[in-house]
Simulated assay, not measured.
Amino acid sequence: MERILIIEDEQLAADKLKMLINKIDPTLEIVGVLGTVVDSIKWLSNHSADLIFLDINLADDISFKIFEQVDLDTPIIFTTAYDQYAIKAFKHNSLDYVLKPVTEEELRGSLAKYEKYKTRNHDYGNKPKSLFDEYLTPQVYKSRVLITYGGKSRSIETEDIAYLYSFEKGTYLTTHEGNTYLTDDTLETLEKVLDPKVFHRLNRKYLVNIKAITEIHRFSTRRLKVDLVPSPPFDAIVSAEKITDFKKWLNQ
């Protein structure tokens, strides 16, 4: 039986991940759920797993710190609400990464990659250390975004962007002055190249600048509503699974 370790500090996300894993493949044995870097180092120093699901932002530190203390040769599937930590390195050095909220379809794809990995009997060696090295390399973020209007194009400074949102098949940029433009980039692409200390992905439709946030309200028992300036075209809602990461971002 394959031994699965989950390293995730948000209980709701961990419970959902366990439920989906058991649903997709009941033969997989979940041997532990850990929420901190310290606990993960202790566990991995004395135990082993065949596959690790690893969140990046844990309760006490960033999970890359684990690689400083433990020499891992276990394949890793990253589960994270953030898409800015050297995604190319993730794809090259890890088995897969999945953005929260994790869906059954995405998880099936990740576990299929794990099955192919076992079949090919790849040797992952010290790839997690390579990933850690990539993390240590400073990332340069975009300072401008290209927009189009009236058949013309020009650049908007990122500091002038209040938020970006997707609508139907387009991605739109709204400035602090209230002007809205169409951009050729997707939210997924922009999330990777904009400074994560300034911009945060609230949900699948909104990527917002912290300076555009005026107030935060309890929208329902498990969701938050974020008030933005200028006023957005539709409500900016933070789902229950993203609330913890959202609060961490606000408290940086």
Rank of each mutant, 00 (worst) to 15 (best):
L34K: 11
T148G: 09
T183V: 13
E68C: 09
K91G: 01
A14G: 10
K16P: 00
Q11R: 08
I213T: 05
P128I: 01
A81H: 12
Y149N: 15
K225H: 09
D60R: 07
R3E: 11
D235F: 05
E105R: 13
I77S: 09
S130I: 01
P75Q: 05
T27N: 05
N179F: 13
I62C: 04
S63E: 14
Y181M: 05
K23S: 11
L250V: 08
P138S: 08
N251H: 13
Y163F: 14
I76N: 01
R3A: 05
L44K: 05
R222V: 12
L51R: 03
T189S: 13
I77H: 10
D9A: 10
L95T: 03
R108L: 03
G35I: 02
S239T: 08
L95K: 14
E8L: 12
Y206F: 12
P138E: 09
K247R: 02
D245T: 06
Y163K: 10
L51V: 10
L173H: 05
L164G: 02
N251E: 10
S45T: 04
N57I: 07
L111F: 13
S231P: 07
F234I: 12
R154T: 15
S220W: 10
D55W: 12
I161R: 06
L20P: 04
V102Y: 06
V208R: 05
P26A: 01
T183N: 11
I243D: 09
I213D: 08
H176F: 07
G151H: 05
T158E: 02
E68V: 07
L51S: 07
L28M: 14
H47V: 12
H47W: 09
E215K: 10
T119M: 04
G150L: 00
E241K: 14
H122D: 01
E68Y: 10
I21Q: 04
I216S: 12
P75C: 06
F234V: 08
I30A: 09
Y114M: 11
I161T: 06
H200N: 12
E215M: 15
E10L: 09
Y124C: 02
P128M: 01
N93K: 06
A14N: 12
D195W: 12
K205V: 07
Q11Y: 08
G178I: 15
L58N: 06
P26S: 01
D9Q: 05
I237F: 14
L202R: 01
L194N: 10
F78S: 00
E188S: 08
I21E: 01
F246K: 06
T27V: 02
I6N: 05
A212T: 04
K116N: 09
A240W: 06
L107K: 01
H217F: 15
V198F: 04
A89E: 06
R144C: 14
I62V: 10
L5S: 00
V193P: 14
L34C: 14
V193H: 11
V229F: 11
L187S: 00
D39H: 08
N57T: 02
A89T: 03
S94A: 07
P128T: 00
T36A: 12
R223V: 04
D195Y: 12
A240L: 00
V102T: 06
L187F: 11
E188H: 13
V31Q: 05
K16L: 03
G178K: 15
